[in-house]
Amino acid sequence: MIDSAAPAPAPAPAGVPTTDAPPVPSAPPFPHRDLLTIQGLPAREISVLLDLADSYVAQNRKRDKKTSLLRGHTLINLFFENSTRTRTSFELAAKRLGADVINMTVQASSIAKGETLIDTAMTLNAMHPDVLVVRHPESGAVKLLANKVNCAVINAGDGQHEHPTQALLDALTIRRRKGNLDGLTVTICGDVAHSRVARSNIYLLNTMGARVRVVAPPTLLPPAVERLGVTVFHKMTDGIGDADIVMMLRLQSERMAGCYIPSVREYFRFFGLTYEALRAAKPDALIMHPGPINRGVEIDSEVADDIKRSLILDQVELGVAVRMACLDLLTRARRAG
């Protein structure tokens, strides 16, 4: 019933990725140096990434999880914003592939005082890393940095712009449970305005043929959000009605009062995910959250912990596999050369 411009990605068996035939046999499967955005990635390339990630899920469940694919390669985790789970996930992904990992956490404020972002980029570049994984509180900062270095750059979240590996791991999580993304109804709930996760997910899900909805008070929606290819709702039961996937967003504490929402309890009353609200969704609807969860703010604790409905821990597990796939693909040209 659902037409999609892109061929529906086959639920990938844990195949050997290098033998998956890309449409043009001579073209590299992922012809980019960096992974900075989901916006602009065609369905074919997203499928290549997800298929490869699928194969790494199997590897990660074995007793010996480590390979030597990236032996001799250096990955620098450069985080200008605190993050435990994303940084750890990248670190684990790189180590399982045999790379050397350096973690650098820089307070963005100290950067503002002295060394500029570009100075930092040039300094690190001189150390010949193979991959830079960068998170920065400003939209576009990772792109700015990528312009100044010679290595592969992965955007681990820039401001309110994009968080591509999060969208990929979300897509993999959905695909493994539902078999396919094409034709699913996915509802994203919460602070879309300030969310890079929401933006990357909206682009990816649209590209892969899902129907995307957002539910939030208008104060937490960015201007012209419908132009990104979503249907807008302001009532939870309407927005998650017949949804296959309900994706909750974290409400940052600095937005919990002020001119976005009057109070946390009011937010939870109208936009929190409870069993009662979830009744509107499909009976087999699944729940996702990029973490960390604010229990009782955007999601009821019981719902979050419901192992039959909640995919939150699957997301964490698959995040490592997705990042391994990204590292593998982005270093191929380098390894071949």
């Binding site: 576009g140 309110q160 933006r199 201007p223 990104l228």
Partner: peptide
């Protein structure tokens, strides 16, 4: 402020 600022994740001036 508009579609582009939303896509770029930049705060808009209405």
């Amino acid at each position: 402020g508009g579609e582009l600022s939303t896509r770029l994740g930049l705060p808009g001036v209405p």
